[in-house]
Amino acid sequence: MNRFQPIALAGLIASTIVLSACSSSPTGRQQVLLFSEQDMSQLGAQSFDALKEQEKIHTGKKTNQYVQCVTDALTTRLGGQQAVSQWEVVVFDSEQVNAYALPGGKIGVYTGLLNVATNQDQLATVIGHEIGHVLAQHSNERLSRTQLANMGMQITSAAMGGAEYHDAAMAGLGLGVQYGVLMPYGRAQESESDIIGLRLMAEAGFDPYESINLWKNMAKAAGGNQPPELLSTHPSHSTRIDDLRAEIAKLPNYNTPRPQCNI
């Protein structure tokens, strides 16, 4: 058999998978989603349980009530399958300036974030952004692309002659994956979550202009240590702020009562 025939077969298989799993994100971007919502929810729950075992959970009543209040104001605006009956929110006692949301309605917020997100609107910016990753099924998308990339590497390596060509195949595909697919693709996900989160927080009654102040605070906290945008999966702070300003100008007037979340 010609050693390049498996490559053609791999392309046919991959094309069939991509066409059958093609979907659109909330902003209309094309996605490939290979995993079911049930699979992703189970994975999210398992990961969240593991994180709760590994991380120290913050027990301060006021802080937990504050984070829960902001989260509730956001999640009550969700509908359809994403309107899970109860989003589980856990505050972790850590200096990390971080938060995340996982499929299945799991949200983690680190106390260090509260030193940078200095009011309810800025905290809503971050939590809304993380919820945006869930709404747009970014975890599913990333896992799906990894699955396809791994399949391509395995078949290409075999087609090029096994061990003799293995290193060359891995190096070539690795470079292509890192700079041609995964890195820019991560920035697209981050920017998309910014848009989704901004719309969500504004609809929930939070001040969308505080999203700009949040990222100004983030830039100060980073102290100039952010890597160049070209080699980062996150947009630069200046790009993020410019994009948010442009998106705020497009927001409708939701007339939603302002949440009253205080720490």
Rank of each mutant, 00 (worst) to 15 (best):
R77I: 07
V89C: 03
R77M: 15
A73R: 07
I57M: 04
V70T: 05
K56D: 09
Q68M: 08
Q68C: 01
G79W: 11
G60F: 01
Q96I: 00
I57P: 00
S94K: 09
R77D: 14
V67Q: 05
D93Y: 07
K61D: 03
V84S: 14
N64R: 06
S94P: 09
V97Y: 02
Q86F: 06
T76M: 11
Q81K: 13
Q65L: 10
D93A: 10
L74D: 12
A99K: 08
N64C: 02
Q81G: 06
L74N: 10
V97Q: 02
Q81N: 12
N64V: 02
T75P: 15
Q82C: 10
W87D: 03
F92A: 00
D93N: 10
V89W: 05
W87F: 12
A83Q: 15
D72Y: 00
T63G: 01
L74Y: 09
S94D: 14
V91C: 10
T75K: 11
S85E: 15
Q86M: 07
G79D: 14
Q65E: 14
G80R: 11
V90M: 08
Q86I: 02
V90K: 11
Y66K: 00
V84P: 13
R77W: 07
H58N: 08
D72L: 01
C69R: 03
V91N: 08
L78V: 07
S85Q: 15
N98I: 10
W87K: 03
G60D: 12
Q65N: 11
A73T: 05
V70Y: 06
Y66G: 00
T59P: 00
Q86C: 05
Q68D: 10
Q86A: 11
S94T: 11
A83C: 14
I57C: 02
Q68T: 09
